[in-house]
C-alpha cells in the first residue's frame, strides 16, 4: 500500500514535470495533443526513475542478511515520506479541482497563490520527504531515499532536454517564414 501510494504520487509528479517542461515552448493555440504527449513523456521518464529506485532498494533488500526486516525498514521510511508528500499533493489536487471553475479571477488567484509557489518549493518538498524517510533509519534507507529524491528531481531536466531541442527546431522554422507586408 505504501509503495503503491508512492508510485502513484511519483507518476503524477512526473507527468506534471513533463507538462512544465513543455509549457512556454510552443506558441501555437491548439496544444492539447502536445501537452498530452508531454505528460506521457514525463510519466515515461518517471517510470524510468521508479525502475531505478526499485532496482536500488530491491538490491539492498536482496543482499541484506535479514531481508524481511530490511523490507519493513523501507516501508517505514516510505510511510514517513508520505507524511510529507500527501499534504503537498492534496493541496495541489485541491487547487486543480478549483481551477476547473471557469472564473478568470479565481484562476488568477490559484495561479499566484498556489501553482507558482508550489512549483518553486517542489524540490524542497522532495528533499524534505527523503530526509524524513532517512531520519532514524539505517544507511540503506538513507541511501534509498537519497536515490529516490535524486531520481525524481532528475525527471524534469531529462524531459526538458527534449523540449529544448523541440523549440530550437520550431524557432528555426518560424524565423525562416517571412511575413507579408
Amino acid at each position: 500500500m505504501i509503495a503503491a501510494a508512492l508510485v502513484a504520487l511519483a507518476l503524477a509528479d512526473a507527468g506534471l514535470s513533463g507538462f512544465r517542461a513543455a509549457a512556454g515552448r510552443n506558441p501555437l493555440i491548439y496544444k492539447a495533443a502536445y501537452y498530452k504527449g508531454a505528460v506521457l513523456r514525463g510519466m515515461g521518464a518517471g517510470f524510468g526513475a521508479l525502475v531505478t529506485i526499485g532496482l536500488v532498494t530491491g538490491a539492498m533488500i536482496f543482499v541484506s542478511s535479514d531481508a524481511p526486516a530490511q523490507y519493513e525498514m523501507f516501508v517505514d521510511g516510505g510511510r514517513r515520506m508520505l507524511g510529507i508528500y500527501i499534504p503537498f499533493a492534496t493541496l495541489v489536487a485541491a487547487a486543480f479541482a478549483l481551477y476547473m471553475i471557469k472564473s478568470v479571477e479565481l484562476r488568477s488567484l490559484l495561479s499566484t497563490g498556489i501553482f507558482g509557489p508550489v512549483t518553486l518549493i517542489r524540490p524542497i518538498v522532495i528533499l524534505a520527504g527523503a530526509a524524513a524517510a532517512g531520519t532514524g533509519s539505517g544507511l540503506e534507507v538513507k541511501l534509498g531515499a537519497a536515490v529516490a529524491a535524486a531520481a525524481m528531481l532528475a525527471v524534469e531536466p531529462v524531459v526538458d532536454r527534449h523540449y529544448v531541442n523541440w523549440m530550437a527546431r520550431a524557432g528555426r522554422i518560424a524565423h525562416r517564414t517571412r511575413a507579408p507586408g
Partner: peptide, 22 residues
C-alpha cells in the same frame, strides 16, 4: 520583424484567419 515572422508562421500552421505586419 522576427517576431512578426514567427507570429505569421504560427498562424499559418493552424490556418488561422489573421495577419501580422511589421
Amino acid at each position: 520583424d522576427s517576431l512578426v515572422n514567427a507570429a505569421s508562421a504560427a498562424a499559418k500552421a493552424e490556418s488561422l484567419k489573421c495577419r501580422f505586419v511589421t
